[in-house]
Simulated assay, not measured.
Amino acid sequence: MRVHKLTFATLAVVASLALTACNEEDLTGQSNPSAASTASPSAGGSDQGSGTDSTGEDSTGKSSTGKSSGERGTVAGTGSNENGTVDKCRTDDLDITAADSTIGGDTEGTVAVELKNGGGRDCVLSAYAGVDLKTSSGTLSAERTGQGADESILKDGESTFFGINYPINESGGSGVRVTALVVTPPDETKSFSLEWPGSATLPASDGSGSPVKVGPIGSAGQGGQS
């Protein structure tokens, strides 16, 4: 009986040692989770050297749209303003000239005024320009003819014309001497003064209204015919 008790005790010790060794092998064979989470991507990975950050830009400074972060779009519409609209013509945008366009046999004299857009952009003209004649008797303002006038776009580099009609001095007297023509573009307050190209004098006014008439923008063609 003593021999059997020793044998059983020895087997119990051996079994305990084997179990301990097995447990130690399992523990040393486990992978380290923290080591796996810090591993770098494999060579040649799709996000090496060209990854995008939270702003959507990649390492070259371009966004997913293909434009670099500093690029901006351009405003459509040649000659238009930045907001895409066409503003009215300013006095400083226009080259204003005048020429005598009276045809022999006419009962009235005619001066054609040319407005040429030199402002580098398209602009809008409409209705009537203001016209004043500087004379030896003071300023004489032209009256509108009353013709209808539509708004029109004057493209950069192009011209439009309007006519001024005035009575020819056939009285035999000295009349009223004209010294200058003053033109104020529509919807503007800045005027442009130039030499009067028509007859040097007007007949004396009887005070019943201005004898000088101005047509709307576009009422005279090239050459001054209305």
Rank of each mutant, 00 (worst) to 15 (best):
30 Q>I: 09
93 D>A: 14
153 I>W: 02
81 N>L: 09
156 D>P: 07
221 G>K: 00
145 T>S: 12
117 N>H: 08
83 N>G: 05
117 N>M: 02
16 S>T: 11
202 L>M: 05
49 G>V: 11
209 G>D: 11
44 G>N: 09
131 V>Q: 01
157 G>Y: 00
150 D>K: 12
77 G>S: 03
202 L>D: 00
112 A>N: 14
63 S>L: 02
83 N>E: 10
46 S>I: 13
144 R>E: 01
155 K>N: 15
79 G>Y: 06
101 S>K: 06
134 K>M: 10
60 T>C: 04
212 V>W: 00
127 A>L: 14
184 T>P: 02
11 L>S: 13
134 K>T: 14
23 N>L: 14
130 G>V: 00
222 Q>H: 13
141 S>L: 06
83 N>K: 11
151 E>D: 05
10 T>P: 03
204 A>W: 04
106 D>L: 11
155 K>R: 15
61 G>R: 07
138 G>D: 10
48 Q>T: 09
80 S>T: 09
192 F>A: 01
88 K>A: 12
209 G>C: 13
201 T>F: 03
32 N>D: 05
145 T>I: 15
217 I>D: 09
23 N>W: 06
30 Q>W: 13
49 G>Y: 13
29 G>V: 04
20 T>E: 02
146 G>P: 01
193 S>M: 12
52 T>S: 12
10 T>C: 11
178 V>D: 00
140 L>P: 03
99 A>P: 00
89 C>T: 07
76 A>R: 11
80 S>F: 07
74 T>Q: 06
114 E>P: 10
47 D>V: 09
3 V>C: 12
4 H>Y: 08
90 R>E: 13
168 I>W: 05
129 A>L: 06
46 S>Q: 10
94 L>W: 14
210 S>Y: 06
66 G>F: 04
192 F>V: 15
201 T>W: 04
47 D>C: 12
90 R>V: 15
208 S>W: 05
216 P>F: 00
102 T>W: 00
51 G>V: 13
46 S>G: 13
28 T>H: 08
131 V>G: 00
181 L>I: 09
195 E>P: 11
22 C>V: 08
193 S>D: 11
129 A>Y: 07
106 D>G: 15
177 R>Y: 08
59 S>K: 15
205 S>R: 01
2 R>D: 08
